[in-house]
Structures are given as structure tokens and as C-alpha cells.
Design a protein around this nucleic acid. Structure first.
Lengths: 359, 359
DNA sequence: TTGAAAGCGCTACCAG
DNA sequence: CTGGTAGCGCTTTCAA
């Protein structure tokens, strides 16, 4: 004969009436005289509960300020409703705009975002990804340094069925989606605009293009456009420093130092342009009278610089939104196939460029 | 006689050799011929494992790319190692600096941060807090609108034993810690600086002080200082709009419209000052020759404005760091008692103020 | 030095 | 419409 003995769960901890917070679903169940399943239903399928059962439970929840533990439910549902956002730094307006947008869109859709700065370090980038995998984020939005090594890592995340989308630039990958502008084309257009305004001697100021693909693209767009117009662009007219305002200050000084007769500087980010503006002023060059300036990003400040900055608009807000939608779409349809979304750029013409061809 | 029959767990799901990702600790245990407890020890107490057991498990982990599930372990340890960060918006440099600092400090200490924008909405603020409680963040850093209602909510979080610290300003609370500058004093000092430079007619430009205590403090500091110096400050010399650059633009125009003879404008944030700078320029007033300008925050751009902006430095990076340390200290020592940390402000003198008293 | 097993708080399936 | 119960992936005694 076989006797099955099941020890009745006693749950001593929760028998004491008043705990300092952290009530569990079991407490609520007990307190309202129903099963945990029923309490759970209140949250996920309230329509199938008898009105007074519902009311009863709700009262208890209200009274005891019960706060469901999302981590616990994620364990069962295997859905943390969290997206991981990897960005280089929040200290640049163009990134902030994206972050804000991602954040807000996620909130709308019920997702939380856990965010990490890479500070432009590949190692940090890798660590961040690991942490996000550890936390089983539902998906990843990557706004960092897009390089093959990292794409490989994202693909590894995909193997663990965590989808991701890269922003700022478009890549070609079957699994990793992307939403961005055509950085090459945008840069080409900006350069062409300058040329159309009659400029012939110009220099480029940009961040570390060797490690950031979108910067490499912008550099290439500039060079190609110059070449196609039979104008000179070489390593001596291209200054690559870092991403900060001070790099713009320094870079402009270097450029003017080497080529005093430049009629225009094209800075591949507004932050650099802002620094350049300051620098040019320091050197006694008036913008746009003596020298013209074009930026890239269209951050909020660029409209209020003196003079206001002609720049390339990057639809950061739209980008963030699209990225989240694409990510969530992948998640919800369990889709592996990547989608690549191209966004339009646009030259915003303001006051920092002299037009020598205008009447 | 009693026979205890325990059904051998079969775990069919995991018996299939190759799953697409998401290996569990049990898989690793099975694969390396040890118990889950032993695998767990590898992560938490590796020194108590026999070297070859250790090596064996490590090999399996490496080979199968096992990624521990932090949510699951949080369920047992009751520690999510996550701090919740509530901020109004990331779109202002002063906030970005804080975010970055909080982020980096948390990362150093092994915490992740889950962040939410309130967009200056009280409702969103409440929702964010709820979400964070749902996610059982280990603690909360609050950089939002400090008002009694929200402090009450944080206290509720404290009841659920989730500690929090408020930043930007100091409060007096027994449970909620704070780290910030003395906004009243800083504002008083900025005003006094202007007065010391010989200014008598000045206006104040600031955000919505009725809903943000630190702005109310700054307003009061300005008014008191003016009064103590027998100078006039009234509702017609104080313009309160919102937080954006355009508010600075508009505000300065309004101020000058009402009081054409103002010799100085004190903007209670650099963003507003930036807008004011633009606006004054539009109106043909040179800074500092015709009119002086003082900002508040010392965001990166203020150094590179033209002219560079005299402003009040708020040690945002230090603040973020201190906030995290205080939070973690509370967590680790299970301390309820609040600590209130005062940070020093400092007037950064640059080129936007004319000194009429100078020789 | 290791293993067995009891949970952590919640969901979801299967009965009724 | 509701309850019982078996997990989710991990940690942590307790025992061996």
C-alpha cells in the first residue's frame, strides 16, 4: 500500500497579520477568502470574475496597498516587459532626444526601459549587453557604436531570442533591424549645399570616424561630394577628434590654422559646430560673413545659436518611436526577420552660411 | 506505516538537448553532472568548490553560453539590484549630467538603473513610481518635482521598505534623504553678485516656480536679496514660463518689453539664459555691453556661448554620485533614517556681466 | 565539498 | 466562475 503524504504548506511568515509591506498574492487571496488564481485573474482577466468577488478582492488590495511583483510574474510569463537601451552618452542633446522618445514610446506601450551608457567604450558596451541579457530584457535598442563586433553580439542575443534594433544608421542584417538616416547621403547633401552656395574651400570636423560607422559614412559623403565637384578634400582638411564641444573649439582652430582661407566649415555634429562657432569668434572670424558653418543633428540649441545654425535634421524623436515600434512588433509576432527603416534627412537652412551665388 | 512518495521531476522541456537559448541552471547542472546548488555556488561562493568541479562547470557554461537569470535570483534574494531614477526630462543638459552620473555610479556598484521621464506631469510621476514599486527596485532616486504629494508617495515606498533620495534640493524628512544645493542661497548670491557689479534694475526669468520647490526657492532668494539691498523686485520683473529655450527667448522679450531700462537679467537656468541671449541679440541689445545676463546650472554649453555665460554652478555629477552612495548606504545598512547632504554652489564668473564698479 | 529539497511570488492549466 | 497545483529559474538551508 502506498500512502501519499503532502505537507500542508504553513507559510508562517505570512501568518502574522501586519508585515512591513511586501504583501504577496497569497496574502491577498487569504484575506479575501479566494484562491491566488482568482486574485491573479483580477489583474489579467477581470471580466471573468463575479462582480462581488471582484469588489471583495479589490477592497482588500486597496486596503493593504498590495503591489504585485512584476519580476515574479515575468518568471512565469517569460516576459519582463523591459527594453534595454544602449547609448554612448546621455550628455549630448541628440542622444537625449532619442532617449526621451524611446522612453515615452515604451511607456505608452507598457514597457519599462533599462538604460546604459557605454561612454564610447567597447568594453562597457559588452558589459551592458551582458547585464541586459541577465535581466532578460524583452528586446534591445542599440544606439551605440555600430561595428561588426557588436553586431555579432546582438546576433548572439537574437539566438537567445532577444531581438534588437540598431538606430542612427541602417545596416544590412537578416536578424538585427535598423532605423536610421542615410548618413552618407545626408552628408553629401550638406556638402553639396555648401558648394551650391559657392563655397570651394571647406574643411570637415568630426568625431572618431574609425570606430563609428555613421561618422565614417558622413566623412565619405563629404569626400565624395567634394571630389565629384572637383574640389579638394584630404586628411589635412578633415579633423577627427572626439564628440565634445571643446573638440569643436579645438578642431576649428586646427582647421583654420592649417587652412586660413577656408570659406566654410562643415561640422558633422551640432555640438562640434557649437564649439567651432565659439572658436571662430575667438579667432575674430565672423560667421557667416567671414566663414560659413554647417552642423549636423539639428539639436534644439542650434536654432538659437548666434547666428542660428544651418544644419542637417536627424529625426531623432521619430527614430526612437519607430525603433520601439519595430522592436515591439518583432517581439509580439515573434519575428526573426529584420526590417530596415530609412528615415528622411533634411537640410535646415538658417543663418550660418553665406550664399555667394545669391543675388 | 507511512510511505513518502516523491514524484521524480521529469522536466521534459529541458530534456531535449539543444534549446534555442535560455538554458537554465538545471541544464548546466545536468550537463556538468552536479547539482544546481553547486552551479549556484560557482557564482556566489566559488572558493568552496573543488577546483576540478569548478573547471568542469565553467567549461559547460562557456560552451553553452549560459546566462543566469537575474530576475529569478532576485525572487529568492529579494534584491533586484536596480535603482529607479525619476527625472522630469532628459532633454535638458543639467538633467543629462545627473543621469549620466547616476548611471555610471550605479554601474560601478553593480546596480542597473531603470529610468522614467515625468515630462513634468504629476500623473506620470505617480505612474512611474508605481511601476518601480511593481518592479521592486532596490531604491529610488528622485529628481522630479519635489512637492508634498510626491514626498508622501516616496514615504509610502519607504513603508514597503524601498528607500529613496531626492536630488537638486534639500528637504527635511526623517525617511527620505536628499542631496542638493541651497537653491535659496545660491540665488541670493547670484543676485548679490549682480548688485555688487553695480546693477540695480534687473529682472528674473524662471520656470514654473509654483509647482517646483527649488524654483520657488530661487525666486525667493532673488526677491529677498533685492529687498535687502533696497531694490525693487515684483511680479512685473519676474517672468515665469516653462523650461525650454524658447521660454527664455519669449521671457526676455517680455521682460524688456515691460522694463526697457533693465541693466541685467538673471535667468534661473542656463537653458533660459541661452534663450534670453538669443532674444536680446534679436532685439539689438549687446550682452554684456547693453545688458548683463546671469544663468544657473553651468551646463556645458554655457562656457561656449557668446559671450560665455556667468552662471551658478550646480555640481550635478557630484550630486548624482552622492545620491547613489547615500541610497546604497541606506540599502546596505537597512537604514531608515534619512541623511541630508548639502552641496556647495559657486558663482562662475565669465563674460556676460558688465561690472560697473570695476576700475 | 556536494546534493536534496523547500521555497521566492506569480501564472496558467486542468478540473469542477 | 473558481480552486488546486505544478512549475518559472534561482538560492539556501540542512544533511550527508
Amino acid at each position: 500500500m502506498i500512502l501519499l503524504l503532502v505537507s500542508k504548506k504553513v507559510n508562517t511568515i505570512h501568518n502574522s497579520t501586519e508585515q512591513q509591506g511586501q504583501l504577496t498574492i497569497r496574502d491577498i487571496a487569504r484575506l479575501s477568502g479566494v484562491s491566488t488564481a482568482t486574485v491573479s485573474r483580477l489583474f489579467h482577466n477581470p471580466s471573468c470574475l463575479k462582480p462581488d468577488t471582484k469588489a471583495k478582492i479589490e477592497a482588500v488590495i486597496e486596503k493593504h496597498q498590495y503591489i504585485p511583483n512584476l519580476n515574479a510574474s515575468a518568471l512565469t510569463t517569460k516576459n519582463t516587459m523591459t527594453v534595454g537601451l544602449i547609448i554612448p552618452t546621455v550628455k549630448s542633446s541628440i542622444h537625449s532626444a532619442l532617449i526621451q522618445s524611446v522612453q515615452d514610446t515604451c511607456a505608452e506601450l507598457g514597457y519599462s526601459v533599462i538604460m546604459g551608457n557605454t561612454n564610447y567604450s567597447e568594453e562597457t558596451e559588452k558589459n551592458l549587453l551582458d547585464i541586459m541579457l541577465n535581466r532578460r530584457v524583452t528586446g534591445i535598442i542599440h544606439a551605440g557604436t555600430v561595428n561588426p563586433k557588436f553586431i555579432a553580439m546582438l546576433r548572439r542575443a537574437a539566438e537567445h531570442s532577444i531581438p534588437s534594433v540598431v538606430v542612427w544608421e541602417n545596416i544590412s542584417d537578416n536578424e538585427i533591424s535598423s532605423v536610421g538616416i542615410d548618413n552618407y547621403r545626408a552628408s553629401y547633401d550638406a556638402t553639396q549645399y555648401l558648394i551650391d552656395c559657392g563655397h570651394k574651400d571647406m574643411g570637415l570636423l568630426l568625431g572618431p570616424y574609425t570606430t563609428m560607422n555613421r561618422l565614417a559614412q558622413r566623412r565619405l559623403g563629404f569626400m565624395d561630394c567634394m571630389n565629384h565637384n572637383n574640389l579638394y578634400a584630404g586628411d589635412d582638411t578633415i579633423i577627427s577628434l572626439s564628440h565634445e564641444v571643446r573638440d569643436g573649439v579645438m578642431g576649428a582652430a586646427m582647421l583654420i590654422g592649417k587652412h586660413p582661407r577656408l570659406t566654410a566649415i562643415y561640422a558633422a555634429s551640432d555640438v562640434l559646430a557649437f564649439g567651432a562657432l565659439y572658436s571662430l569668434r575667438q579667432m575674430g572670424r565672423r560667421v557667416p560673413k567671414d566663414i560659413s558653418l554647417v552642423g549636423f543633428d539639428n539639436i534644439e540649441f542650434s536654432e538659437y545659436c548666434i547666428p542660428s545654425l544651418t544644419t542637417v535634421n536627424v529625426p531623432a524623436v521619430k527614430m526612437g518611436k519607430k525603433a520601439v515600434f519595430e522592436l515591439v512588433d518583432k517581439i509580439q509576432h515573434n519575428r526573426l526577420q529584420a526590417k530596415h527603416i530609412y528615415l528622411e534627412h533634411e537640410i535646415i537652412i538658417r543663418d550660418s552660411v553665406a550664399n555667394y551665388r545669391a543675388t
